[in-house]
Design a binder for these strands. Sequence first.
DNA 1: GCGACAG
DNA 2: ATCTTGTCGC
Length: 234
Amino acid sequence: MGPDPGPGGPFGLAGTWPRSPAEAVLWQEALAARIQPEGDPGPVCYVAGCDVAYRGEWAYGVVLLFEYATGRLLSHSWARERARFPYVPGLLSFREVPVLLEAFFRLEGPEPDLVLCDGQGIAHPRRMGLAAHLGLCLDRPSIGVAKSRLWGEHDPLPEQALSACPLRDRGEVIGYVLRTRARGRPIYISPGHRIGPEAALRYVLTLLDGHRLPYPTRLADRFARTRLSQEEGR
DNA sequence: GCGACAG
DNA sequence: ATCTTGTCGC
């Protein structure tokens, strides 16, 4: 039968999910055709940051919703599930998308105009990193913000803060490498869904606050770990 | 066989 | 990602 990208298919909401890495690769090849890694989300009022933390077999997915203009935290949500898929480089979304979708489903308040994820977007061997997969499932503009490289090549990056270089795959720009702090390790930014590489870089630049990572994903990471440690006391 | 390999 | 103490530096 193979991948099922039809209605209810790729979202893990119809009880369907790949059972093996080989099957997951087939899903990615089918889903990649639906990703729109271009454009600009337009007026952004609300931004979400999300992340997943693990404690043994349990995955804790967290979503934080911010007002873009002020950076104020408007709401948050979380979900806990048994991890359904092992971590395999290139197949991260099959491990993290289900628990993140549940957390998004529980989120109250306005719909986010932009979603930032911890991981790659289309800077991926099949253009289907976590941010691309999640953005497609949510049908929302999404950006991947990764702490290390998975795919793509780039020129040497100047040591200066805020220096950036295109991340390319066979000449095609699939994202940007951005050094957010002088002499610090860079971060890897790539479009997920419904946004282009340049707009993705531009939005991330506006979400920096002096730290290595933009605050939506940085705070989501911190919240997920806090949530996790609070849970181990019961 | 060897290196690379998001979280 | 997670397992884990102290330690170097701003």
